[in-house]
Simulated assay, not measured.
Amino acid sequence: MIEATNFREAMSLLTTAVNVITTKGASGAHGFTASAVCSVTDSPPTLLVCMNQSARSHAHFVDNKTLSVNVLSAQHEHISNTFASKLSSAERFEQGSWTELVTGAPILEDALVSFDCAIDDIQQVGTHSVFMCRVVAIKHSETPDEANESLVYFNRTYHQLGQPQFA
């Protein structure tokens, strides 16, 4: 049997994009930092997002049945840290500029890309909920391509990916 600590150590070597996942409903706006996001299919456009069931905002995501995936650029490390912190939901949204698309889930205005989603299905797997999310709108960054370096997480630290190539 594989021990959880051994699994977590091995997974730290899997490079992942850094995302802020948000929702908004009757109880306000909520969000968390996540790396467990991936594409499922393009027909219909669907993402998979994993969230720990013990997270304080878990019930809000389940109740709202909507979320947005905001893919962070290298300039957003502070936002990633804020949404991973113990700060209140209201304090978290004081960082960055936020808007919305179709579902009302907060969209980070200068994210590399944001996916606005309806949660179509939720599966419980161990300690986490797996949200199957149908993409209903997409917003791309409007900043120049050279500023769009991705924020990734590898070996328990942040890195930048996509630096301009110089000849």
Rank of each mutant, 00 (worst) to 15 (best):
D110E: 04
L47Y: 04
L151H: 08
V102D: 08
A4L: 06
A111V: 03
F93R: 11
V125E: 08
D145F: 10
Q124D: 13
D121F: 06
T66H: 12
A10C: 11
V20Q: 13
H140Y: 03
L87P: 03
S97Q: 13
S35D: 00
S39G: 08
V130Y: 08
D120Y: 03
S43N: 15
S73M: 00
A147Y: 09
V102E: 15
V102I: 12
C50A: 15
F93I: 08
V152C: 10
A90K: 11
N70F: 00
F7D: 02
V152I: 15
T157G: 14
N19W: 01
T143F: 03
N70D: 00
S80G: 04
E100S: 14
Q124P: 06
N64F: 09
L161I: 00
G126M: 10
V49Y: 12
V40S: 09
N81R: 14
P164W: 07
H159S: 14
T15Y: 04
H30S: 11
F115D: 00
A17R: 02
A26E: 14
R92S: 09
R134Y: 03
T41G: 15
L108M: 14
T143R: 15
T5I: 14
S141T: 10
A84N: 04
Q95I: 03
D121Y: 05
S68A: 15
N19G: 01
L13N: 13
G104V: 06
F61R: 12
E3S: 11
S57V: 04
S27I: 03
V62F: 02
Q75G: 11
R92P: 00
Q75T: 11
L14H: 13
N19T: 02
L67P: 03
V152G: 09
S73Y: 00
V113R: 12
M51H: 10
S129K: 07
F93G: 09
H60P: 02
A59G: 08
K65D: 06
V18H: 07
R134P: 00
Q75E: 12
E9Q: 13
T15W: 04
T5M: 11
F166I: 04
Q124I: 15
A10E: 05
S54D: 09
H128E: 02
A4S: 07
T41M: 11
G126W: 10
A137W: 04
N64R: 09
V135T: 01
S12T: 08
G96Q: 12
L101C: 07
D121H: 14
E94M: 10
A118I: 11
N148L: 15
C117R: 07
R156Q: 13
A17H: 03
